[in-house]
Deep mutational scan, measured.
Amino acid sequence: MQRVNMIMAESPGLITICLLGYLLSAECTVFLDHENANKILNRPKRYNSGKLEEFVQGNLERECMEEKCSFEEAREVFENTERTTEFWKQYVDGDQCESNPCLNGGSCKDDINSYECWCPFGFEGKNCELDVTCNIKNGRCEQFCKNSADNKVVCSCTEGYRLAENQKSCEPAVPFPCGRVSVSQTSKLTRAETVFPDVDYVNSTEAETILDNITQSTQSFNDFTRVVGGEDAKPGQFPWQVVLNGKVDAFCGGSIVNEKWIVTAAHCVETGVKITVVAGEHNIEETEHTEQKRNVIRIIPHHNYNAAINKYNHDIALLELDEPLVLNSYVTPICIADKEYTNIFLKFGSGYVSGWGRVFHKGRSALVLQYLRVPLVDRATCLRSTKFTIYNNMFCAGFHEGGRDSCQGDSGGPHVTEVEGTSFLTGIISWGEECAMKGKYGIYTKVSRYVNWIKEKTKLT
């Protein structure tokens, strides 16, 4: 034993070699072989497995989906700052455009905790909710729209109204504003409101030439003092309507412009014939205590009207009353817009006519005020429907199939267009061939041609 100890002390290297040989010859039971080890760690190889990531292109799944990435790591994937920024906006807080917040056709661009709407022409605001041009839906104005110097929408209202708090709607500024039905039992019968379409306001006024200088022999019209197929109006439903009495009662109609003036057809009036105007009328054979009678003290036909040349060209006249009318729910003026808007309103496509005229061709006159909704007829169809001249200051309205029309005794009465609950004068009943005849239409004086003249002559002093 002493000898062994001496050998170990003198030859430590020998001992180490012996131990190493023993270990190498022993069977290893701690580690699995290569094949079995792979069965336990069965993990798919990654895209760049075996390579240094710093030297390969980034992978979106590896960089940002398996674990949260930084902007720089995302930049490695896209290799483009702009594309990385677009991805980053949604990656950080989701897609803010998912709810489609942009209105009126706006395009949404996502941002971090926010979004941006790219608005089409005519709109602005956070969600493109603000109209900035009158060309689109009248700028959301209830009545009139004008573009300011910086191309912003400025709404306005006709006389007797003021802008509401929203700067879009119009509200009454006087007790009985024009064009409004205020009798409670008839307010439910107000005709369907007309909503502004998209309009090209630059070209809204037709490029028409008034044929002022045409000389033409007097034409022989049949029954051209021209509501057939209409309905009984309720008291106060058309408070701007008046009836004219002269040699015979209810020979023509008219509309209240203001307390002192009536507008009617020029062919209705004769110099030297006494005319009485009755406002607030409903049943011409009954006294309903809503009527107001006034005498006409002055007749002003349009300066281009000449019955000797043509009885229905420039067929418009103004009547001055001896005493002002007292405005109330049964006696209310009709609204008159400017030339541009009167023309736009007419193009809405349908209007209402009213009167006490004959209820059928050569038949009896109506006792109760009649009204009828009539569609506008395109000019080409209008011209083809008659052998008589249709001037540019006239328009056609009615039904091709016949059966409904204005008729004798309705002449001078109103053709009105309702705009968001307020009625505007767009025409004056003038003439036609018979009444409600198939293929024939009622012919009306186009008020847009005469609004400046009306307003100039009827100013209240």
Rank of each mutant, 00 (worst) to 15 (best):
C145M: 03
L244V: 06
N42K: 06
F424C: 00
V451Q: 03
S430L: 15
Y312N: 08
G357Y: 15
I300K: 02
L327H: 03
R180M: 04
N147H: 09
E270G: 06
H267I: 02
E10L: 07
D93S: 14
D410N: 03
L20D: 01
N5T: 10
Q185T: 09
S423W: 12
I275V: 08
R294I: 02
E10S: 14
I284C: 08
E231M: 09
V296E: 00
H282I: 05
K311D: 05
V296G: 01
A173P: 00
T194P: 04
T381K: 06
N393D: 08
L244R: 00
Y305C: 00
K457F: 07
N59E: 09
T417G: 00
Q185Y: 09
K455Q: 12
V202R: 11
N283G: 08
Q2W: 11
V277M: 03
Q90H: 09
D410T: 12
T276E: 06
E10T: 05
G349Q: 11
I256E: 00
K126R: 10
D315I: 01
Q90W: 04
V30Y: 15
A164S: 03
N306V: 08
G412M: 15
E281M: 09
N166Y: 02
I454K: 02
S385D: 13
V4F: 10
S99E: 11
G413V: 14
R294Y: 01
V248A: 04
C119F: 01
Y330S: 02
R384P: 13
K39D: 15
D150A: 06
Y22G: 03
V257Y: 02
A9E: 03
I316G: 00
V181F: 05
E323V: 14
E53T: 10
H361L: 13
C134M: 03
I256C: 01
F251T: 07
S354Y: 11
L130I: 06
L460K: 15
V174H: 07
D232E: 08
E86H: 15
D200C: 15
K168D: 03
C268E: 00
Q216W: 12
D212I: 07
R384F: 06
E124K: 03
C134G: 02
T158G: 04
V77I: 06
I316P: 00
C69W: 03
L425R: 00
K457P: 01
C170Q: 01
L244K: 01
T81A: 06
K137T: 08
G421A: 13
A26S: 09
E340Y: 15
V447K: 00
C396Q: 02
F251C: 06
D315V: 00
D200F: 12
A397K: 03
P333K: 04
Q96N: 13
S411P: 10
A9S: 08
E129K: 10
L327V: 13
L321Y: 00
M437D: 12
G125H: 04
T381H: 12
D33N: 07
P177N: 01
I316V: 10
N166T: 03
T225I: 07
C108T: 01
T186S: 03
T461W: 07
A307F: 08
C382Y: 02
I210A: 10
L24C: 05
C157P: 00
A366W: 13
E79K: 13
L321R: 00
I7K: 09
V273W: 12
I284R: 13
G236Y: 03
V273A: 09
S187E: 09
K347Q: 14
H289I: 10
I390A: 07
E129G: 11
D212F: 10
L32T: 06
L23V: 07
H303G: 10
E285M: 08
R191N: 12
N310E: 13
F251A: 11
R364C: 08
W88P: 15
T225V: 09
G122V: 03
V359H: 12
G106K: 04
L318W: 00
E61W: 07
E434P: 15
V154I: 07
A250R: 06
Y330L: 08
S182N: 08
E61M: 08
Q216R: 06
T271P: 05
M394N: 11
L19Q: 01
Y161I: 00
Y115Q: 15
Y91I: 14
Y305V: 02
E27L: 02
T342S: 13
A317N: 00
D33S: 08
T218H: 10
A436E: 15
H415M: 08
N48A: 13
L52A: 11
N5R: 05
T417W: 01
C178T: 00
C117T: 03
W431V: 15
R46C: 14
L244G: 01
A173V: 08
P324D: 04
F71S: 15
G246M: 05
V326E: 13
L52S: 11
V92Q: 12
K347Y: 13
S411A: 08
R75V: 13
F348M: 11
A436K: 07
P101D: 05
W261I: 01
V416N: 03
V451G: 07
L369D: 07
N258H: 03
N104I: 03
T225Q: 12
K455C: 04
S99K: 14
K234C: 04
K188W: 09
T271M: 08
F123I: 13
E10Y: 03
L383E: 15
F399W: 14
G421C: 02
A308Y: 13
Q370H: 13
E320C: 02
N343F: 03
A233C: 05
P177C: 02
F71L: 15
P414H: 15
G280M: 02
A380K: 12
L376D: 01
C69Q: 08
K168A: 13
T81Y: 06
S107C: 06
E434M: 15
E116D: 10
C128V: 02
L244I: 04
R384D: 14
T342H: 04
G280W: 01
G403L: 10
G402C: 12
P301M: 10
N151G: 08
V199R: 12
S430R: 03
N42P: 10
Y115D: 12
I7R: 14
L163H: 01
C97Q: 02
Y371D: 04
Y305H: 07
T133N: 11
Y450I: 00
R364N: 14
H282C: 04
E320I: 01
F238I: 06
K247S: 13
I112P: 15
G13T: 12
K137V: 12
G94H: 09
P101R: 13
G50S: 03
S354P: 10
N127P: 03
K293N: 09
L20S: 01
M6P: 04
V447I: 15
G106L: 02
G125K: 06
Y352K: 01
V419F: 13
T290S: 08
G355Q: 15
M8R: 08
T332M: 10
R298T: 05
S423Q: 13
L52G: 05
T422I: 15
N245D: 06
S365Y: 14
C155Q: 00
D410S: 07
H267V: 02
K51F: 04
D212Y: 08
V447Y: 01
I344Y: 11
A164V: 04
D378T: 03
G13I: 14
V242I: 05
T264A: 07
A366E: 14
Y441C: 05
G58H: 13
V154L: 11
V273C: 05
E420I: 12
E35V: 07
S365L: 03
C396A: 02
E79P: 15
G236S: 05
S255F: 01
N283F: 09
C407Q: 04
N100F: 08
T426I: 01
W261K: 00
L318T: 01
Y22L: 04
R180F: 03
A307I: 09
I300S: 02
V56H: 13
E208N: 12
S99C: 13
C396W: 01
S204Q: 03
V181E: 06
K234S: 11
N38D: 13
A192L: 12
Q2E: 07
G439Y: 08
G409I: 09
V447A: 08
N222M: 10
G349E: 08
D150V: 07
A265V: 03
G413Y: 15
I275A: 03
T84N: 15
S411M: 15
P324G: 05
P172K: 06
Y391V: 07
T332S: 14
